[in-house]
Design a protein around this nucleic acid. Sequence first.
DNA 1: GTCTATATATAGATAGAC
DNA 2: GTCTATCTATATATAGAC
Lengths: 194, 194
Amino acid sequence: MNKVKQAPLTTTKAQALDLGRHYLQTLGYNAFSFQLIADELGIKKASLHYHFASKEDLGLALIADYEAAYIESVEKMKDLSALQKLTRMTRIFCRMSQDQKKLCPLGVLAVDFNTVPAKMQKRLLDFHKIQQNWLITTLKQGLKEKSLKKDLDLNFTADLILAAIQGGLLMARVRGESATLENMLEKLIKDIKR
Amino acid sequence: MNKVKQAPLTTTKAQALDLGRHYLQTLGYNAFSFQLIADELGIKKASLHYHFASKEDLGLALIADYEAAYIESVEKMKDLSALQKLTRMTRIFCRMSQDQKKLCPLGVLAVDFNTVPAKMQKRLLDFHKIQQNWLITTLKQGLKEKSLKKDLDLNFTADLILAAIQGGLLMARVRGESATLENMLEKLIKDIKR
DNA sequence: GTCTATATATAGATAGAC
DNA sequence: GTCTATCTATATATAGAC
């Protein structure tokens, strides 16, 4: 009879996760609360604890959720050229900034790093390494495709791109505009082109 | 009789500011409290309110204090060559990171931006512009001294250096090492050299 | 300038009813 | 899965004594 489980478009848990990411990106880890998310959902904060036993649980879920989205978007790019990949990747962060000057969850949690549990710290490092490795691999692909300068320092360039993104997001927020970030990342990619 | 005011090497207020900056740089604005600073000073938190009426007052003082230190260190460099200035400036942030993986107070408050009073937000923007202007001016000096590539995009380069610093500080904390930041900034300066 | 005491708000978290 | 009620800890901040 294949009783199909009712699959609501958005479960409470999924909605809570979305709101959590929103507040993480706009307020930081220590400035949002179960109360804030619960109010937005129209439920009590005690009910939220049914879905996430502790704030650490929520934090870990937020990291895993963001990581899954990252992996998925990278997966979708797998058949593109290195240059196309780099451009699309930087655009993800430009759109993030355009959306209420949001920051990367990873960048936010780097600032709050010393205030979060060790487990979260470890997940952050793991995720950061994934991003770093993807960039290095993509730059290598670009070298093979001869679309990037052949004397490129891969590790340096990958780190510079990552840092420019994170730092650029911070600057966009303080300045209240994302155009500079967009121009900066665009020019950065242009500068490593052959 | 010129009664010389007793000038203790470190007043309670000055010590509180130092501790405040320390906790701001390591924990973030929303994760440190009057209690934490008071405990460290061996006084009660109510006593701290004598020196800083509110947390906003303390926050503003922390920004002004950091800005004063920045202005002073820039002032000291005024007779140096552009390249020397750039190198010294980046070293300030390398040392910051080496010291317990601290972040720039400005970067921290950029993340906490939406949670601080409007007055603090304005001061942050003002300060950021000062840093930006100093960098652009210094790059111009480098062009005049013919020590930098003549086709340099000044605004882009200034923004890239600022972003690399802020983003690099975040990455150093997550990775638990500052060497990559040091190498990155060193290579970044090298790359704009003539 | 520092203290005790207190007001008020909010945080994360749990117990147990429905 | 959500509720009410409650616990405990901590936050910013103030009043008034010393």
